[in-house]
Nucleic acid binder design. Structure first.
Lengths: 246, 246
DNA sequence: CTTTATCATTGACCCAGATCAACCCTGTGG
DNA sequence: CCACAGGGTTGATCTGGGTCAATGATAAAG
C-alpha cells in the first residue's frame, strides 16, 4: 500500500476506492440518492461500509418478514418490491430504479420482498453500520426522512390509482410515472423501458395480465403508443397524460 | 406572575401550561405520538409552540396543494385524509386517530386534504417553528422518521387491500385495523366505533356505499358482527381476522 | 432444424361489484 | 303533529374486468 503525503490527505481523504476506478465520488446516481446529503469526507466513510453487489434476474435481494440485516442502494437495474398473500395473490408495491434506497425504515425485519427484474447492481450496507453512521449525522437522517416521506407520497398516489382508477387510467399512470422516473435517471425519454413482465405490471396495478395486454394493444391501435421489445414508445404523450389527470 | 425559586426551576421547568390544568405532561396520548421522544424540558419548549385547536364535524384542517404552514397533532376525535380527482372521485388515504401526526413530510404544500369526522381537538404548530425545533433535536427527527416509516408500512398494506382483496376482505380489514388502532388509544375494545359515514368507508376501501352496506349486513346476518349506532360489535373476532389473513 | 418453455395476445363467456331506483329510518324544525 | 333532509338499506339490472381456453411469438436447448 503506497504512502499518502499528509498534505494530500486533508483535501483528498484516504478513501480506498476513491483513488481507484469506481468510487462514490464518480457514481452517476449519487445526487439522486441518500448519498447526496454527504460531503466528500463523509462519502468516504460511507464507502468504507459499502459492499458492491450484483443480482441476476429473478434473484432475491431479501424476503418479507426475514431479519433486515442489510440495506441496499440500487445503482443499476430494476427491482420489484412486493407482498404475497397466503393464497398466492401478489401485490407489487413498487419498482425500485437506480438511485432508490431499500431499507428506509431501519426496522428489524423487511416489510416486503424484493427481487431483481433485470441484472441489478447495488451498494449493500449492514443495517448496524448504517444505523451507527446515522447516529452522528443528523443531515443524513434528514435526507433519509425526506426520501421516506417522498415514498409515502408515492404510495398515497398509488392508493388513488388502485382504489379509484379504471384499467385504462391505471396503465396510463404506470407509463407516465415510469417515464418521469426514468427521465430523472437517464434524461428525457420517449421510449419507456418496461423490463418487467405483464404479470408484474398487472400485480402492480391490481389488474390481470389479460387486461394489461388488452389495454396496451388498444392504446397501440389508437396510435397513442407503439409497442416495442421491452418497452413502449409514447406517440401521443399529451393524450396519455390526459388519461392520468382526468 | 409569581416568582419561581431557582432550585425549583431545575426540576420543574417554568412551563406556562404545565403549572395549569392541561399541560403536555398529562396529555393522555403523549406516548403514542411524536412527543414521546421528548424529555420534560423539551416538552415545555414544544408546548410553547403549540396552539390548542378544535374543529367541528366536516370542518377542514387543511386542503391538498395549499401552502403547508401548519402541522397538527390530533389529541381527540377522528380526521379523514383524502385526495380528490378532478371529476369528483375521492380516495380516502387514511383516518387519523388521537396520537396521529399530520405533517410528517415537512413539505411546503399539503399532499392531501383533511377534515374532521367528529369534533376534533388538535395541537397546532407552525411548520417553521417545528422545523427549527427539529434542527437541534436529532432524536425528535428520529422519532418523526420512525412515524413516517410506520405510515409508509400502513400505506403499503393498504395497497394490498385495494389491489388484491375482495369486498368482503376489504371490509374485514378495515374493522380489524380500526379495532387494533382504537385499542392502542382507548384500550381493548369489542365494539369498534365507526364515526365515519358509509361513503367514507367506501372511499377508503375502493368500493361503493351499497357494497359496504350489503357486506356489513351479510356479516350481521352471519352473526360475525352486530351493527350498533356509530359502530359494530365484533361477535366473532376470530372469523373476522381469518378474512383479513387468508 | 425441431422441441420445449415462457411469455404475450386474443376471443368467448361469466361474475363481483357498480349502477339505478325505491324505500326506510332518525332527527330537526315548523 | 307533519314535512323533509341526510344518512342507510335493499332490490333489480348492468358492465368492466376477471376467468378460461386457445393461439402466437421468441428464445434457449437438443
Amino acid at each position: 500500500m503506497p504512502a499518502v503525503p499528509a498534505e494530500n490527505r486533508a483535501v483528498r481523504p484516504s478513501c480506498s476506492r476513491a483513488r481507484g476506478e469506481v468510487g462514490c465520488a464518480k457514481c452517476k446516481i449519487r445526487l439522486l440518492s441518500v448519498c447526496a446529503a454527504l460531503d466528500e469526507n463523509e462519502l468516504c466513510e460511507l464507502e468504507a461500509l459499502a459492499q458492491q453487489t450484483v443480482f441476476e434476474p429473478k434473484k432475491t435481494l431479501f424476503i418479507q418478514d426475514e431479519p433486515a440485516d442489510a440495506i441496499y442502494n440500487i445503482t443499476d437495474g430494476v427491482v420489484r418490491l412486493y407482498k404475497l398473500l397466503p393464497d398466492g395473490r401478489r401485490q407489487i408495491i413498487g419498482f425500485a430504479l437506480p438511485g432508490n434506497f431499500l431499507g428506509l425504515s431501519m426496522a428489524d425485519r423487511y416489510g416486503f420482498s424484493a427481487d431483481a427484474v433485470v441484472p441489478v447492481k447495488a451498494c449493500r450496507f449492514s443495517r448496524e453500520g448504517f444505523s451507527n453512521l446515522l447516529d452522528d449525522k443528523p443531515h443524513l437522517l434528514r435526507r433519509l426522512h425526506e426520501l421516506a416521506t417522498h415514498e409515502l407520497t408515492l404510495a398515497q398516489d398509488q392508493m388513488v390509482v388502485l382504489g379509484r382508477r379504471s384499467a385504462e387510467e391505471k396503465v396510463a399512470s404506470l407509463l407516465i410515472g415510469l417515464r418521469d422516473r426514468w427521465a430523472r435517471v437517464n434524461g428525457v425519454v420517449v421510449t419507456v423501458p418496461l423490463p418487467m413482465s405483464r404479470q408484474d405490471i398487472a400485480d402492480f396495478l391490481g389488474l390481470t395480465i389479460e387486461t394489461v395486454s388488452r389495454t396496451l394493444t388498444r392504446f397501440a391501435r389508437e396510435k397513442i403508443i407503439l409497442i416495442v421489445p421491452d418497452g413502449v414508445r409514447l406517440l401521443d404523450p399529451r393524450r396519455m397524460e390526459a388519461l392520468t389527470e382526468a
